[in-house]
Nucleic acid binder design. Structure first.
Length: 355
DNA sequence: CTTCTAACA
DNA sequence: TGTTAGTA
């Protein structure tokens, strides 16, 4: 094989060859996606490997991935492309559903327009919202789900790097978890569950083996100020709390689990949510912000599910879960759902799941 | 005439 | 990403 027969392209030649702009080439280099060699005059030279990689980048970009995603993929941190394809498919399906609801909304407005009825600016704004609102978010959480599910490689951290990660943490919904060092190994201890060993993939970034869950820590000026729990395409943040407050919260929770009594507000809140999802103009103001975002994304899906189930006939409390959620069984005319609900200190619904 | 960096749109 | 300025 000829060794020195490799052709080296200048920036302009490379740009022409790949269909990219010189500016884009420099941007990709700045983002660490490529690293062309330089001449003594600092001119960039692009070889075979760079051209190959640029073609990969172009393909992945057309595929809808951000430069950040592409960087992660190309740096070898991601090996499971099959899962990437799946999540990308889900993201595209979500956009498809979004487009379909947009089309339906347009058809409705078109019919009213044809009949000579007036169309308010509010109608149009609502239409615009359905069209541009969710797809980006869904694609983003789709990718986040993949990112959280991808295979990970554990590295080891020094004792110093984990010493200040031990403590008690409280989430927005009031739930308290602890992180503990046991024999030099960091553990994540949610209430009512066994301790999970946290494996480091980088300083302040950990994962749990066998679960698509990550735990990371936020620092400000070197001090740890937050614990982030990554799961289901989202992230929940907890703040450090002192040991006494943690103990109080833990005994309160333990008491609720022992007594197995639902919170006074639970049943009414669930009925409210069901009624709201069935309404033409859902209002999610009683949901905490993170949940509100989720609810808006899933509005059509939930509305369809609830519509297929028919009217609610009864709502029966079953138990208090290990994390303090009130679990109900909702009986509908055409089926049943298990529903879990939890509240933030603000009184708004912080957790809600339908099964 | 081209590429470089840096900064701004 | 595009554009522009001032260089080498």
């Amino acid at each position: 094989m000829g060794k020195d027969t490799e052709e080296w392209l200048t920036a302009q030649q490379c740009a022409t060859r790949t269909g990219l702009s010189i500016r884009a080439l420099r941007l990709y280099e700045q983002r660490g996606l490529i690293s062309p060699r330089r001449t003594t005059k600092d001119w960039r030279l692009y070889g075979r490997s760079e051209i190959e990689r640029l073609h990969e980048i172009v393909a992945l970009k057309a595929f809808g991935l951000s430069l950040k995603d592409i960087g992660a993929l190309l740096s070898g941190q991601v090996t499971d492309l099959g899962r990437a394809l799946d999540t990308q498919r889900h993201a595209l399906e979500a956009r498809l559903r979004q487009a379909e609801t947009g089309l339906r909304a347009i058809d409705v407005l078109r019919q009213r327009f044809d009949k000579g009825e007036s169309i308010s600016t509010e109608d149009l704004l609502g239409l615009i919202h359905t069209m541009e609102g969710a797809p980006e978010t869904e694609a983003a959480t789709g990718w986040a789900r993949y990112e959280q599910a991808r295979p990970r490689v554990a590295t080891s951290l020094s004792h110093n790097q984990m010493a200040d990660l031990e403590g008690a943490w409280q989430f927005a919904d009031g739930l308290v978890v602890r992180t503990k060092l046991v024999e030099g190994k960091l553990h994540f201890c949610p209430p009512g569950q066994p301790a999970y060993r946290l494996w480091a993939e980088a300083p302040d970034r950990f994962f749990i083996k066998g679960l698509p869950v990550q735990v990371s820590f936020t620092r400000r000026e070197g001090a740890v100020v937050g614990l982030n729990h990554h799961q289901d395409g989202g992230v929940e943040t907890a703040v450090p709390i002192d040991s006494a407050s943690a103990a109080l919260a833990e005994t309160t929770l333990a008491q609720r689990i022992t007594e197995q009594q639902p919170l006074a507000a639970s049943a009414a809140a669930i009925r409210g949510v069901i009624a709201t999802h069935g309404a033409a103009d859902p209002d999610f103001d009683n949901l905490a912000p993170a949940l509100k975002r989720l609810a808006e994304e899933q509005r059509d899906h939930m509305a369809a599910v609830l519509a297929s189930l028919g009217p609610l006939q009864s709502l029966d409390f079953t138990r208090v879960s290990d994390t303090g959620l009130d679990i109900f069984i909702a009986n509908f005319a055409q089926g049943r759902l298990e529903i879990g609900i939890g509240f933030a200190p603000s009184g708004k619904i912080s957790t809600l799941y339908f099964t």
